[in-house]
Amino acid sequence: MLEARNLSFSVGPTQLINSISFRAAAGEFTVIVGPNGAGKSTLLRCLSGELTPTGGNIVMHGKDLKHYQPQELAVHRAVLSQSSQLSFPFKVHEIAMLGVKASQLALSKEEANQRIAKALSQVGLQGYEHRYYQSLSGGEQQRTHMARVLCQIWQPVTQHGPACLLLDEPTASLDLRYQISLLDLAKSYARKGGCVVAVLHELDLVKAYADQVYMLKQGELFKAGDPHAALHQDVLMDGFELDQRMLNLKWGTQMLEPRAH
């Protein structure tokens, strides 16, 4: 379980997050939504331990996040961030291997290779081990990172407690099919006892997948609750400052409504 209490983060005089309380339970898919600049990514970066909050605290497995060493933290939580550019040509296998190493498990070479192969097949990249990352499409690159992240926290539940999977706009560069298959993967990770937190923009996908939704607006918590309550029309109109025409346009062009299993 990952819990933030009265979390604030500011850079100089600018308050990016203001006293947000947040709770992501094990076994649930928790989604953060909100307009641009609401502080969604900042919240996720605080939850990952990368940013140290300027107020409040974050607790994972009953221990304050700032008391974790980076190496220890990497065993319990993994982060899939928005597209990252590599500085040197790496093969898909080498990238996934970073996840295996970060898991701190003493796997034999065969076991590591098997795990990587399995993770790659889960994201639809079986047989891509020796392809260069730079030669892949944007969506394939994103899925490579998803495979790496899975290798890092392979078991949704360990003897220390549930593992945390943090996803920052994971579907941004994916086509419809892989948006759904990636969220299926995340959802099943949660169902096996993991703790999954994602920043998402596609509200139709949020509706289909989220167990719990946190809507942020201007650095503050605007609404929290199950998708039905948090994505209610009135909430959306206020939260995103929409008018009726925009809302009709959005839901009017809805092509399909994915159903989570």
């Binding site: 980076p70 961030s81 990252s84 970060a102």
Partner: peptide
């Protein structure tokens, strides 16, 4: 940032 996520100090 990714290096930090992977447990690097």
């Amino acid at each position: 940032a990714e290096a930090y996520y992977l447990g690097v100090n």
